[in-house]
Amino acid sequence: MELSYSITTIDGLFVVALSLLLGFEVIKNIPAVLHTPLMSGSNAISGIILIGGVIQLLNTTVESPWTMAAASIAVLLGTINMAGGFFVTHRMLSMFVVKRKPASGPRS
């Protein structure tokens, strides 16, 4: 199953190394107020693992019902993780109404 978008193992390792550096840079200075939404949002992103289930499901024939059933379960689990995560993050962030910069402390 070699599809146009798929990458070789060594390409994959390049992506791993570079995204790891990128990932730390992107989220390095996140204020504490956003820690919970960041966590639930990144949790939602990890639901992207359901792509694996989609690949398995679409490449399985009716002759192997168990594979098909297992792939469906994987898609279901991944979708709940992903959809629920994005929805709840949206709900949380809707509560943060940012108008002014946070106070830096008492007036001295």
Binding site: Y5, I7, G12, L20, I27, I49, I51, I55
Partner: peptide, 16 residues
């Protein structure tokens, strides 16, 4: 699965 988006997503979550 040789899937770049899953890779990147996974790493971002791991790093966070």
């Amino acid at each position: 699965f040789h899937d770049p988006v899953m890779l990147i997503g996974g790493i971002l979550v791991g790093a966070t």
